[in-house]
Amino acid sequence: MTTDWNLLGVAESYEDYVPVRERTFAWSALFEQAGLGDRDCHRVLDYGAGTGRVAEQILRSHDVSVIAADRSPSMLKVAQHKRQDPRISYQTIGPDQRVDLPDGELDAAISCFVFVCIPETDTIQSIVEEVYRVLRPGATYAMLEVNPDSVGVPFELGQMGRMGREYAVGEAIEMRLARPDAEPMSILDYHWPKEVHLDRLRKAGFRDVGLVDPTLPTEYDGPDADRLQVERTMAPYTIYVARK
C-alpha cells in the first residue's frame, strides 16, 4: 500500500526528518543543475514541494520567487504554517497533475523525491509533460531522486530496500529514514531504474537529457561529517536534468 501523504500525521512525521544529506550537498547540486543562479532565472516551480523545505532553501541562496505545488493538502498545511514568505506561493496540484499556471511562464523547475512515490509510469509521464508545459523555451528541469543503484547500501541516514535483493521495475520498496530521538520513518516507495525517467523526459519533448550522481567531497569535515562516510564513495541520490 502506498504511503498516504494526505494524512496530516504522515506530513508531520516527514517534517521531523532532518535532511542532513540534502542540506550538505544534494540541494546545492540540484539548484546548480537547474540553473537557479542564472541571470535570467526569476520564477521557479517546485513540483511536489512537500512541507516547503526545499523552497525555503532556494530562497536562502537565490534571488527568485518560488511556486511551491503539492498534491497533499496536509503537506501544504505544514508548509504554510512553518514557512511563510512572500516570495513563496503555494498551490494544490490538481487530480490531473496540472498546476494553475500559463504555458511557458517559468524560468526553471525542480522536484525532489516525487517519482519514487509514484507506482505507475503514466502518472510520471503526466507530471513530466506538465512541467514541460509551464517552462519557457530553454528553461531547465532538474529532478532529485533516490539513486536506484543504491538499493541495500547501508547509509546511516537512510536505507532503501534490502541488500542482495533485486527489485523489479516499479516494484514497491521500503525506504527507512533516520530521525533524531525517534524510530526511523518507514516509507513505501517504488523502484524505478534510471532509464525510466530518462525515457519519460525525452518522450515529453525535453532535450539535452542526462543525469548526475552527486557524492560528498572526500575532504568534507563540516557538520555531520562522521555520519556521512558512505556518501563519499556511493551516491545516495541521482539528479536528472533536461532542457526544454
Results as ranks from 00 to 15, higher is better:
L76T: 07
V146I: 12
G52S: 05
G94Q: 11
I93N: 10
Y90W: 15
S61I: 00
A139P: 09
S111P: 08
G152C: 01
I67Y: 03
E145S: 04
E56G: 02
Q97R: 14
R87G: 01
P154G: 06
V146Y: 08
V78C: 05
V99W: 09
A142R: 05
S126T: 14
L157C: 08
K82R: 13
G104E: 15
A109Y: 06
E105S: 15
P86D: 15
G152Y: 02
A79L: 11
L144E: 05
G158Y: 02
V153F: 00
G158A: 06
L76C: 04
D63G: 00
P95Q: 14
Y141L: 13
T123W: 09
Q159L: 07
G138H: 01
Y47A: 04
M143E: 13
D100W: 04
R83F: 14
M160Y: 00
M143S: 15
L59G: 04
D122L: 05
Y132S: 14
S74T: 10
T140E: 09
V116Y: 05
P154A: 09
A55C: 06
D107A: 12
E105Q: 14
P119S: 13
Q97D: 14
I124W: 13
E145M: 06
I93F: 05
G52N: 07
R136T: 05
H81M: 11
L59E: 14
